[in-house]
């Protein structure tokens, strides 16, 4: 059985501070880590591998620095890694990366299961999983917490409202894994050296994927950043209980506290 896990990378939040006053992010140490939710996805794939015969392949698209993330994923237990990168791929947006990953997955071929982290921590992008499922024409389950396989049937526990649902889906299929669904394993001591020094990351460029710069032109335009209002102590709300309550709830939402 072949399981493919796409891996994305984000700026390590421990390396920067956010200053609402200056409306800026101050980067002290520019380091990149695997998107935490993608590690939850990898953990689901690796636990399926632990439970039976499976080959886990990781794939990433975009900048060359993703090489590092793929090697970490191999150190955690992935068997093979594919990196889709060149100048064009490095400059595309999330939609372009999705397109590249879809082509890459098709090119690897013969997959039974794709496991994707539901969203990225840096941009709250939750598009990739279902988008890929549609592209590849496979069944899909979102909000996944756990998965197990028997007789070619995947049994999944997924978030559902305030509770959960237990569902069954035939392979091939795609799962998007809920953030925090599990505690991802650490890279394996014995694998670390090999993953970084010996093992190959197979690299494909946009031409290998049959993609041109026009195919990968960004479909979105960055418009900068927005910062929550600065903290000011001692503000008083006045008015009727209904008025102050409405004002309070609005402020908390504006500040993304609730």
């Amino acid at each position: 059985m072949r399981i493919i896990v796409p891996i994305r990378q984000i700026l390590d939040p421990r390396g920067f501070t956010v200053s609402p006053r200056h409306e800026r992010i101050f980067i002290n140490r520019e380091e990149y880590i695997i998107n935490p939710n993608d590690k939850n996805a990898l953990e689901v794939a690796l636990s399926l591998k632990d439970a039976g015969e499976a080959e886990v392949i990781v794939i990433a698209g975009g900048q060359a620095r993703l090489d590092d993330a793929l090697r970490e994923a191999m150190a955690m237990g992935a068997d093979a890694a594919y990196l889709l990168t060149d100048e064009v791929l490095a400059k595309t947006d999330a939609a372009g990366v999705a397109e590249a990953l879809a082509r890459g997955i098709e090119k690897i071929g013969d997959f039974d299961l794709i496991v994707v982290g539901q969203e990225t921590l840096d941009t709250a992008d939750a598009q990739l999983g279902p988008w890929l499922a549609e592209y590849l024409g496979v069944a899909q389950v979102g909000g996944v917490r756990q998965a197990s396989i028997s007789d070619g049937v995947l049994r999944v526990r997924r978030n559902w409202g305030a509770g959960y649902a237990e569902v069954e889906v035939a392979l091939p299929a795609l799962l998007t894994v809920a953030s925090g669904a599990n505690k991802p394993r650490y890279p394996h001591g014995g694998r670390i050296m090999a993953a970084y020094r010996e093992w190959q990351v197979i690299t494909w460029n946009s031409e290998d994927l049959g993609l041109t710069a026009a195919d990968l032109a960004p479909l979105t335009q960055g418009r900068g950043r927005a910062f929550p209002p600065e903290r000011t102590l001692g503000e008083r709300l006045t008015g009727s209980p209904q008025d102050v309550a409405a004002e309070l709830v609005q402020q908390l939402r504006l500040r993304r506290i609730i």
Binding site: T123, A124, T220, G222, G224, R256
Partner: peptide
């Protein structure tokens, strides 16, 4: 549409617009 999306759980937000051809 110009969309605001919470970054890092709301520490700040990314503001992104659709390209006109979308």
């Amino acid at each position: 549409l110009v969309c605001t999306m919470p970054a890092y759980g709301g520490e700040y937000s990314e503001v992104v617009a659709f390209s006109p051809e979308v």
